[in-house]
Design a protein around this nucleic acid. Structure first.
Lengths: 116, 116
DNA sequence: ATTTTATATAAAATAATGTTTATATAATCA
DNA sequence: TGATTATATAAACATTATTTTATATAAAAT
């Protein structure tokens, strides 16, 4: 039996889209939707300071949108599939053009870093 | 022939959800999704100052989410069906539980005001 | 014409957010 | 063990958003 996703309160939606509305965080989510990324990779790709990236990831994790996997000194982030807001995340990300120029530029910057 | 909605750039999505992420504005949108409301009705229902309401409506209109109809001294606002972001608006509002307690409370406060 | 009513706008005050700078933690490496 | 690397956290600072207060506009009523 397939259960339809539980509807959210308006405050849950407000909080969810608020944390997603920062341009950097929205792109992070669009990236980690398809696979996990290491913090060091994200810092490289976004050309942003390490603490700034850490703050963004912390907010997304606190809101329950991302999950974290630790391996050695590295931390990998990806969409938390079990999030109560997973449906909200998906429908919003699906509104973004996959050919969006800046998103493609970001993908090009993805370098094979030795954090695997 | 049915054309699928144009995909948005990530910045269009970021700006759209940012303006929707304020709790008051999200509820305004949820209300005006089904019918138009006069400013004076909204001020009553939200128990907020008139200038504050006007600022919220101004932001939603500026972002292209709402349209305005003038009749005499009154202004009525409703969802702009022709907005490039109409699909984004709809999928987000559809995530909100129609039985959300605070949304229902708001509907109860809807008084027949003589602005019709 | 003057006053009232509905709404918007501008400026000031307040609150929230994001970035930087500095420091802490914890794992790995030499 | 001590140094290095990856990341997080905290505090200070800068930026942005929201609310309030005051004023402007424009339609309707007197």
């Amino acid at each position: 039996m397939i259960t339809s996703p539980k509807k959210l309160s308006y405050m849950e939606v407000a909080n969810g889209i608020k944390v997603m509305s920062d341009p950097t965080r929205l792109l992070i989510l669009k990236l980690v939707e398809s696979k996990e990324y290491c913090v060091c990779q994200l810092v490289e790709m976004f050309d942003i300071s390490q603490p700034a990236m850490s703050q963004h990831l912390g907010k997304l994790k606190k809101e329950g949108l991302l999950k974290e996997r630790r391996r050695g000194q590295w931390r990998f982030y990806s969409i938390d599939e079990s999030s109560s807001q997973i449906s909200l995340i998906r429908v919003i990300l699906s509104q973004i053009d996959d050919e969006d120029e800046q998103f493609l530029k970001l993908l090009e910057k993805e370098a094979p870093i030795d954090c695997q």
